[in-house]
């Protein structure tokens, strides 16, 4: 079996043995979803708000919560723990491509995100959300968010490899956090103030969010999905390139 998959299975086992680590990843985004619906649901009634396409405000908010859940970077925290504890060196002393160590954790992050994303969507269905694009759209939504979780975790792992410190990795994650909020997460881009609209347009996360939202509200919108896919692919390629460089030069 491929070494990355072997290490991925090990990371999955680790996740299953630390279920408490999944609690914030699930509960915090759900908390934001419920609170935001509670605060803004009446401002945007479903029958009188064009951008909701007849759905309630939860449908508009859901992508923000899904991307928030995908941005906890749990893989990086486990990695840095191994660096500090010495097991990372044990793995580096084996004759496997060093990138397998990074990829194994990212594969596990993908599987974990599939579970969490599917569960969050299931909960949102109970809140009256419909996935306009149907079952295929649901699957695409889960896959897209989960690949984004891998990419995000990959960037967090870069911080872990560079700093080799748990505190620095956690702090480094906060650098990415504003990107989630400089997005059209409350209203569509055309309703934002001009400075926020510019910031959101420059922010790549916007296009991932809009692609996810299009599957929930509009069906299959090739333009939105295409832009989201390009952003994910470009960020993924950048993350993988930097990871290969950093782990192969790790001294």
């Amino acid at each position: 079996m491929n070494h990355s998959l072997t290490l991925g299975l090990r990371a999955m086992r680790e996740t299953l043995r630390t279920p408490d680590s999944l609690v914030p990843t699930l509960l915090i985004p759900l908390f934001f979803l419920v609170v935001n619906i509670g605060q803004a649901g009446r401002i945007f009634p479903s029958d009188d708000t064009d951008f909701l396409n007849g759905q309630n405000y939860a449908a508009f908010q859901l992508p923000s919560s899904l991307l928030l859940a995908a941005s906890f970077g749990g893989a990086a925290l486990y990695l840095v723990e191994e660096i500090e504890g010495g097991y990372f060196d044990k793995l580096r002393a084996t004759p496997i491509p060093r990138m397998s160590i990074v990829l194994g954790r990212l594969y596990a992050e993908f599987v974990k995100s599939v579970g969490i994303t599917a569960l969050m969507i299931a909960i949102s269905l109970a809140l009256g959300v419909r996935i306009e694009s149907g079952v295929a759209g649901f699957v695409l939504l889960v896959v897209m968010v989960s690949i984004w979780a891998m990419v995000f975790s990959g960037f967090m792992q870069l911080i872990a490899l560079k700093t080799r410190s748990a505190a620095a990795t956690q702090a480094g994650g906060l650098v990415f956090f504003p990107l989630l909020f400089l997005t059209p997460n409350f209203v569509p881009r055309n309703l934002l103030t001009r400075p926020m609209e510019v910031a959101a347009t420059l922010n790549p996360v916007t296009y991932v969010m809009e692609a996810c939202r299009s599957l929930i509200l509009d069906g299959f919108d090739a333009t939105a999905l295409g832009k989201g896919a390009v952003v994910i692919a470009a960020a993924g390629a950048l993350m993988l390139g930097l990871s290969v460089r950093l782990i192969n030069r790790y001294d």
């Binding site: 504890g85 010495g86 060196d89």
Partner: peptide
């Protein structure tokens, strides 16, 4: 060809 056991046994505590 080599086996390595470094300072402070680097092991994965969850396995």
């Amino acid at each position: 060809k080599i086996g390595v056991a470094l300072q402070e046994a680097g092991l994965d505590p969850r396995q």
